[in-house]
Simulated scan of single mutants.
Amino acid sequence: MDLSTLPLVGPLLHGGADLVAALTAALSPVAGSFAAAIAVVLLTLAVRAVLVPLSVLQVRAERDRRRLAPQLAALRKRHGKNAEQLQRAVQRLYTNEKVSPLAGCLPVLAQAPVLSLVYALFTHASIGGTANALLEATLVGVPLGHSLIVTLTSPLWVHAWVVVLLLAVLAVVVELSRRANLRWNPLPTPEPGAHVPGAAATAAIGRFAPFITVVFAAIAPLAAALYVVTSAAWAAGERAVLRRVIR
């Protein structure tokens, strides 16, 4: 089944393909073979710029959660043995303080459709019955539609260093962001001698979950990996600035 023929998906894919193709054509005289990759980066930057207001809400939500940390700690101490009562009490606190626990997810949720579009643009051989010209675009010899796995198992494996380098940059950005988040929002310290069920598992998930984006970038088309790396770098810099501005 060709998703590009569906009533809603088709126009989005056509519009996205036309936009990336137009950007690539405009950049080609100065960027040459890098034009398509730069077009994806510019598209990512444009999306992130539009989402700045949501990022502001995200940082404000962080600030509010930090302000409420002592009250949350008291609720955990009071209702720690009853998860249902604790959940209701926390929800009541957030409601009374007019704090949204979902505000921190807004930028990620808002980007999901765009990332899905980029992914689809570079995985469809044809769009609406027409050959997808975007699949001919490359970055240092690697087609933007190839993932790391595909590149390693193809005759182009000698160019796999390009994708590996991108993934390494992404891993560094993810780790720096994780450490910055811990400094800004330190995890609650359990009382001496207290046993918190599932604490070890929660800590392990918190340590490694951010790197899921690196795994995704490794199996996604190179264009989608470019989007993820650019977005992650923007988010890290943007949050560092907003955290100093919003007090």
Rank of each mutant, 00 (worst) to 15 (best):
D2I: 10
D2G: 09
D2T: 08
P7C: 11
P7T: 10
L8P: 12
G10P: 12
L12N: 14
H14W: 12
A17M: 15
D18V: 13
L19C: 03
V20Q: 00
V20C: 00
A26W: 12
V30Y: 08
V30Q: 10
G32S: 13
S33V: 13
F34H: 15
F34A: 15
A35G: 11
A37T: 14
A37H: 15
A37G: 15
I38L: 02
I38N: 00
A39G: 02
A39P: 02
V40T: 13
V41M: 00
A46G: 04
A46H: 03
V47I: 10
V47C: 08
A49Q: 02
V50Y: 05
L51T: 02
L54G: 02
L54F: 04
L54I: 03
S55H: 01
S55K: 00
Q58R: 05
R60Q: 05
A61T: 03
A61Q: 04
A61N: 03
E62K: 09
R67P: 10
L68H: 05
L68D: 01
P70A: 02
P70F: 05
Q71C: 07
Q71D: 06
A73K: 02
A74Q: 01
L75M: 02
K77P: 01
K77I: 04
K77D: 01
G80P: 14
G80H: 11
K81M: 15
L86F: 00
A89S: 01
L93G: 11
L93P: 11
T95I: 02
K98W: 15
V99Q: 09
G104H: 08
G104K: 08
C105S: 13
L109T: 10
Q111S: 09
A112W: 12
P113C: 01
S116L: 07
A120V: 10
A120M: 12
A120D: 07
L121S: 03
T123Q: 06
T123H: 07
H124K: 05
S126F: 08
S126L: 11
I127P: 04
G128Q: 08
G129I: 15
G129Y: 15
G129E: 14
A133K: 09
L135I: 11
E136G: 14
E136I: 14
A137R: 07
L139S: 14
L139E: 11
V140N: 12
G141E: 07
P143F: 06
H146W: 13
S147C: 10
S147G: 11
I149D: 08
V150S: 14
V150H: 14
P155C: 13
L156P: 04
W157H: 09
H159V: 14
A160C: 10
V162I: 15
V164S: 11
L167D: 07
L170F: 01
L170W: 00
V172M: 13
V172S: 10
V174K: 04
V174H: 02
E175T: 06
L176M: 08
S177Q: 07
S177T: 11
R179N: 06
A180V: 01
L182H: 07
N185I: 03
L187C: 01
P188M: 00
E191R: 08
P192N: 03
A194Q: 00
H195V: 14
P197T: 05
G198W: 06
A200Y: 09
A200M: 14
A203T: 13
F208L: 13
I212A: 09
T213E: 08
V215E: 04
F216R: 15
A217Y: 13
A217L: 14
I219N: 15
P221H: 02
L226W: 04
L226R: 05
Y227W: 03
V228S: 10
A232E: 01
I246K: 10
R247E: 12
